[in-house]
Computed example of a mutant assay.
Amino acid sequence: MSLKNSVCLALLVSLAGCATLPTSGPTGKQVERSAIDPDTTLPIELVNVEASTDLPALEPVAASLRLAQLPPPPTDLVGPGDVLDITIFEAGVTLFAGSGSTPGSSGGAVPGVQAQRMPPNRVDDDGDITIPYAGKLHVVGHTVSEVEAMIRASLRGISQNPQVMVNVQQPITNTVIVSGEVARPGRLLLQTNRETLSDVIALAGGYRGNTKDLVLRVIRRGDSTDIAINDLIETPSLDVRAYPGDRLMLINNPRTYSVLGAPGSVQQFPFARSRVSLTEALATAGGTNPTLGDPAAIFVFRYVQNEQRNEVPVVYHFNMMKTGSYFLAQRFAMKDKDVLYFGNAAANQPSKVVQLISQLFSPILTVTSAVQTVQNSNR
C-alpha cells in the first residue's frame, strides 16, 4: 500500500470515529424534542406561534398606576424631622419677656402687643414638640394651622388670648429624595403636592443619558415600582403625582437580547429603541445563515411570570418559511434578556462531511503533488 493510501485510510478511520460533527447548536427538531421531554428537570412550555392568539399578552405598563391611589396631602402637613418657626403674639401681660426669650424667663407688664419668637422647634421622632408652660404637643399628621390652634389652646388660661403663627422653617415631610441619573440629586421640596414624576425629574435638573436605557424606580411606603422613562413619556397616565416621602431613583439599565445558533452574527445586541419587534431583531442579527441555519427553526427563549407570580421558562417557535410568521413577528415584542436562537438545518450535515473531508485531504494532495514534482525532476 502506498504512503498516500495509508494516510488517507488513517484519516477516514479517525473521521468515522468522530461522535459528532462541529455545530453551533441543536436543530429545530432537537429543540422541540428536548422542550417537551417529560424527563427534563426543568419544565418548559413550548408555544408554536401560528396565530395572533399565540402571541404573548403585552404586559400592561399601567400596572404602576397603583401609585396614583394615594390622594395628595396638604402642603403644610407637619411630620417628624420638620423644624418649626413659632411666634406667639400677646397683648398686655406677656409670658415671654423680650424677643427670642428662652423657656423659664419671667413675664412682666408690657403695654401693647408683643411678638415673642421661640427658638427653632424640631418635631421629634415621636411627632412631638415642646412649648414652654404648655409642655409636649403631639403635632405629627396635623397641618400648620392646626398646630397653631393646638398651641393657642394649650396657652389659654396662662396668657391673655395669645395668637400663634407657625412656619415650617426646614421641611422634611413634604419632600422627596431624588437620586441616580439626574443632574442635581438630593432632597426636593414639593411646593404644591401636584408635581408629577416627570416634574420631579425636571426640577432635579433633568435626566442624564439616553431615555431608552433609563428606568425610574419609585419606592413608596415600602412598595417599589419600575417605570421605563420612554413609557413615562409615551403614556401620560403613568405620569402620576409624586407623593411626600417618595424615593425616586433614575437607573441606567440598558436592555439587551442575545443571539445564538446559526444567524448571520452571534452576539449580544442592545435595544435600539424602547420597543423592538422580533422582525427587527432578526434583521439586526443578519438573518439566518444560508449555509447553516434553518428559517423554519426560529426560537425565542424567555422567562414568563405565571399567575402565581413564579417565573417559568417558555420557548416561542416561529416558522419563517410561512408568510404569516413575518406578520406575527412584527407584533412580537422582544424583552430584556431574551435569547433569540436560530436553529441549525439538519440538511447541512452531509455538506459538513464533504467540507471536513476536503479540509483533511487538501494538505495530503498538496504534499503528494509536491513529491511527484520532485520525483519527476530527478528522473
Rank of each mutant, 00 (worst) to 15 (best):
Y133I: 13
Y133H: 12
Y133L: 15
G135E: 06
G135A: 09
L137G: 12
H138S: 13
H138F: 10
H138E: 10
V139P: 12
V139Q: 06
V139K: 06
V139N: 08
V140H: 05
G141T: 02
T143H: 01
V144A: 07
S145C: 02
S145A: 13
V147M: 05
A149W: 05
I151N: 05
A153H: 14
S154F: 02
S154N: 08
L155M: 14
R156P: 04
G157L: 03
G157P: 09
I158H: 10
S159Y: 09
S159Q: 04
N161W: 01
P162D: 01
P162K: 07
P162Y: 07
P162C: 06
V164Y: 08
V164W: 08
M165H: 07
N167C: 00
N167Y: 05
V168A: 03
Q169W: 08
Q170E: 14
T173G: 06
N174I: 00
V176A: 03
I177F: 14
V178R: 00
G180C: 05
G180I: 05
E181L: 05
E181R: 13
E181V: 01
A183Q: 02
R184N: 10
R184Q: 09
P185A: 06
G186N: 10
G186Y: 03
L189G: 07
Q191F: 09
Q191S: 15
T192E: 06
T192I: 01
T192Q: 12
R194F: 03
L197K: 06
D199G: 03
A202P: 00
A202T: 12
A204K: 02
A204Q: 01
A204Y: 01
Y207R: 01
G209W: 01
G209R: 01
T211W: 00
V215R: 10
V215L: 11
V215I: 14
R217N: 10
V218T: 13
R220I: 10
G222Y: 06
D223E: 13
D223V: 14
S224I: 08
T225D: 11
T225S: 13
T225N: 12
A228K: 11
A228M: 10
I229L: 15
I229T: 11
N230P: 04
D231W: 07
L232W: 00
E234N: 14
E234C: 04
E234L: 11
T235N: 15
T235P: 07
P236Y: 06
S237W: 02
D239L: 09
V240T: 15
V240R: 03
R241L: 15
R241Y: 02
A242S: 14
A242C: 10
P244H: 01
D246A: 06
D246V: 12
R247P: 03
M249Y: 11
M249N: 13
I251A: 05
I251F: 00
R255M: 10
T256P: 07
S258P: 07
S258Y: 12
S258R: 14
P263E: 00
S265Y: 01
V266H: 02
Q268W: 02
Q268T: 15
Q268N: 12
F269T: 12
F269K: 08
F269W: 14
